[in-house]
Write a protein that binds this DNA or RNA. Structure first.
Lengths: 140, 140
DNA sequence: CAGCATCCGCTACGATACTG
DNA sequence: CAGTATCGTAGCGGATGCTG
């Protein structure tokens, strides 16, 4: 855990505790990628080896060309995956997980692990009293 | 990590490598929370201590009541944060980070750290040749 | 095969007004 | 103070059809 710098002080820990506002929008972008419906799935698939367009479409269940192309492009532009086009008569394009994407997936993996681990716990909370909402009394 | 079943063959780790399809939708929910525009921000703020509704609205810049209430409710229902209402004459409600939310934030923190760390690297890729798109030639 | 273009529904989100 | 209710919008994402 590295703090770029200590910003927050006693009271004004502020919204973004140890996050410089300059990086805020960028962080959002990464977080958005993670929250993306397909990005993580595609990365997960590519983790097991390079794959071509059509194969990806087959491996990622329910994705549309539009989204496949779109997500693929974004991931490529971010350098998370690599795109290699072979100028053959039947065009062949292979996508592979770039080291950068591999690093990201490592962390996302923990997220997935955490999610799986606390699966029941969260479901239990939902079925319960609607969360851990407590009521306290006190006279003003 | 359990496989729901063997999907492909040896090498074909498949779409959801080690993720049982049963958990898939749940994983998505967690990933969605992370990708959420406000959830992480709110958690980050609460990490520095319990806070009331109005304070949260002040600490999280640019959030609307609608979204604050909505996100707060979701996080509470998931048990990521806790809600305590004091039945006083001027109503007072305090939100605090639940242990579950703390655990999640620990991982998200890594994500943020990673993002900050590879900030330049990704930006460089975008300015570059439009990603690591390579062209290979081969005769058919 | 590997895309791009177009249309279109859904819902996430914001702004505003009102209440217990 | 701590919300609820309603409305309007923008962008995500799906379906379909066409191209190099």
């Amino acid at each position: 855990m590295q703090d770029s710098a200590d910003i927050g002080m006693a009271a004004a820990v502020g919204p973004c505790a140890s996050i410089p506002a300059e990086h805020m929008d960028f962080i959002r972008q990464v977080l958005d990628r993670v929250g993306d419906k397909w990005s993580v799935l595609i990365i997960a698939v590519l983790e097991s080896g390079p794959m071509r367009y059509t194969d990806l479409q087959r491996q990622v269940p329910g994705i549309s060309q539009r989204m496949l192309t779109h997500t693929l492009r974004q991931l490529t532009e971010d350098g998370l995956i690599s795109r290699t086009a072979y100028a053959e008569v039947p065009p062949r394009v292979e996508y592979a997980l770039a080291p950068l994407g591999g690093g990201l997936y490592g962390i996302v993996r923990q997220l997935i692990g955490w999610a799986a681990e606390h699966h029941d716990e969260i479901r239990a909370n939902r079925s319960g009293a609607g969360g851990s909402a407590t009521s306290a009394s006190s006279r003003s």
